[in-house]
Simulated assay, not measured.
Amino acid sequence: MKYLIQPFQNIFNISGKATLKEFWVFFVFYVFLISPVIGFARGLDLLGDNITLALRIVFLFPFITLGVRRLNETKFNKWPFLIPIVNLVLAAFPPKENI
């Protein structure tokens, strides 16, 4: 549960580090649970366009900052995280040790 709350607590912290587990737990939670629920509710007209957009933004910002913090730990450049699919590949790398 802490891996789902930490991205929201550190939403403005892009200088920290995020573990591999923290990133993937939040990613799976968002992609396989939150997005389908939002899409299903939107399809049934339970949510309006503005609410749907707001919910997606509420989960997008923590995901981006979590990805940037994940790339801090892997010592990669942060800008490629904004490219779809590339961000997932880079986030899957193990942390680099300080020598």
Rank of each mutant, 00 (worst) to 15 (best):
D49N: 10
L88E: 07
Q6V: 05
D45I: 01
Q6N: 12
A92E: 03
F76P: 01
L46K: 11
P94R: 10
F81L: 14
R42Y: 10
T52I: 05
A41G: 03
G48S: 11
T52S: 12
G16S: 13
G67C: 03
G16A: 10
L82A: 10
V58C: 06
F61W: 15
V25R: 06
L60T: 13
I64S: 00
L90K: 08
L55H: 04
L60H: 08
F29P: 11
N77E: 11
I38G: 00
Y3S: 15
F32E: 00
F81C: 14
F59K: 05
L47V: 10
A54H: 05
I57P: 03
W79F: 14
R69K: 07
V31L: 14
K75G: 11
T52W: 01
Q6M: 07
T65M: 13
S15H: 14
R69W: 15
F81R: 09
P95C: 10
F40N: 12
N13C: 07
L88F: 13
N50R: 07
P62T: 12
P94E: 03
N13F: 11
P84Q: 05
M1L: 12
K78H: 14
I51L: 10
G43H: 05
F93Q: 01
I5E: 13
G43F: 05
V58I: 14
I85H: 05
A54R: 05
T19H: 01
I85E: 08
I85A: 07
P95W: 10
E73T: 00
P95M: 08
K21N: 08
I51M: 07
F63R: 04
I11R: 13
A41I: 11
P80F: 01
I64G: 00
L4V: 09
A54E: 05
K17G: 01
L60I: 09
F63A: 08
P7E: 12
L82M: 11
V68G: 02
R70E: 03
R69C: 03
I83P: 02
I14D: 03
R42C: 02
F12N: 04
L46M: 15
I11L: 14
E97D: 13
N50H: 06
Y3N: 15
E22N: 13
L55V: 02
D49Y: 03
F27I: 01
D49K: 09
F61H: 04
P80C: 08
I83G: 10
F23C: 07
R70D: 01
P7D: 07
I11N: 10
F29W: 14
F27W: 03
K75Y: 07
Y3C: 13
G48K: 06
F26E: 09
Q6K: 14
E73Q: 15
E22R: 06
V86H: 06
A92C: 07
K75C: 08
V86D: 11
P36L: 01
N87W: 02
P95F: 08
E22S: 09
K75D: 13
I34W: 03
L20A: 04
I99Q: 04
N50D: 09
